[in-house]
């Protein structure tokens, strides 16, 4: 009898071990390849009405999800003839923000600091942001160069690094070889090629909008270190000194735990960390081809010129 029980326990242990072992690439590292979705209604920062609460119970999560989905529904929240109504753009059918909180049921994607909020900006970063906002108020429609990088179809604020949920097209694809990993974000079109194997970063005078990413494996986790940012692509006030550390761990067949740590001592008063359990997507992932039909850029500037003509009369 004892022998039968021992065999039974061994089989159970083997099954459990198999479930915890991620699929492997030919080189033995976990296979992270596939299309993944980071759509979630969990906000980056903890809402004020959930201050002090780290996680929701399953029951609370159900209620919260309904509240947020209703609140986000642009068709339910219209105040006609207001700037905000114009900013809401189009029917809810075009949006795809997700309807669920993250599987950890945390109330914010930020896990450090414990309050779930982005740390305060340094005084010099506050000054930079203030000067920028003042300048925008006066020059935002001078020409295409003054519009945001997103409107110019150059860089999308959630495409990464780091990758965050956005209003729609929350998908990215990972391609993996022994020597390189490629992360292709549906929004806005970026394919980030990440060399593995310990190659050094670019020289410090070489700066790029999305930085310079280098990866390596720490046991079963892919760690990607990104530096050499130009500062043009800013994460909530970050500057060219941003050092970003992303970690990708396939914690189950359908879940990729994506974490990133933000360290930018000239922009933030302390480092901060985000965790997003990302889910496997059936796909397909589509081309976005933002430049293809970016009529809005012409319309925005034409509108500004028309307003100037009226003022001149």
């Amino acid at each position: 009898m004892a022998r039968i029980l021992a065999i039974f326990a061994f089989v159970l242990a083997a099954i459990a071990a198999d479930q915890q072992t991620p699929p492997r690439a030919p080189d033995g590292h976990p296979d992270l390849q596939g299309i993944w979705s980071n759509a979630t209604i969990t906000p980056l920062e903890r809402p004020s009405d959930l201050a002090g609460k780290q996680t929701l119970t399953p029951e609370e999560a159900t209620v919260y999800e309904k509240q947020v989905v209703d609140r986000n529904n642009v068709d339910n929240n219209r105040k006609e003839k207001t700037e905000r109504d114009v900013a809401l753009a189009y029917n809810e059918v075009w949006y795809d923000r997700g309807t669920k909180v993250v599987t950890s049921r945390r109330t914010s994607l930020i896990v450090d600091p414990a309050d779930g909020m982005i740390p305060a900006l340094t005084p010099e970063a506050q000054k930079r942001v203030q000067e920028t906002q003042t300048w925008i108020a006066e020059h935002a429609t001078d020409g295409p160069e003054e519009r945001s990088l997103a409107e110019r179809c150059l860089v999308w604020r959630t495409a990464g690094p780091p990758m965050l949920p956005g209003p729609y097209n929350n998908n990215f694809q990972i391609l993996q070889t022994r020597d390189q990993v490629v992360i292709f974000s549906e929004m806005i079109h970026d394919a980030r090629v990440i060399p593995l194997g310990g190659s050094p970063h670019l020289a410090s005078n070489m700066r790029q909008w999305i930085g310079d990413s280098r990866g390596h494996w720490e046991r079963d986790t892919l760690v990607v270190d990104t530096t050499n940012f130009s500062g043009k692509y800013s994460l909530r006030g970050s500057d060219q000194n941003l050092r970003l550390t992303e970690r990708f761990t396939r914690v189950s067949p359908d879940t990729l735990l994506y974490e990133f740590a933000v360290d930018d001592p000239t922009a933030f008063t302390r480092p901060w960390t985000v965790q997003i359990p990302v889910t496997k997507s059936q796909g397909p992932i589509y081309e976005y081809a933002c430049h293809e039909g970016n009529y809005a850029m012409v319309d925005i500037l034409a509108g500004a010129r028309a307003a100037e003509k009226k003022t001149a009369k």
Partner: peptide, 23 residues
């Protein structure tokens, strides 16, 4: 600078690709 602020304000109501209120 404007690129930075555009990114800083990503908590806008919906976050369409461009500012519809400007168009």
């Amino acid at each position: 600078a404007i690129a930075s602020v555009g990114l800083l304000s990503s908590a806008a109501p919906v976050g369409a690709h461009h500012a519809f209120a400007a168009e």
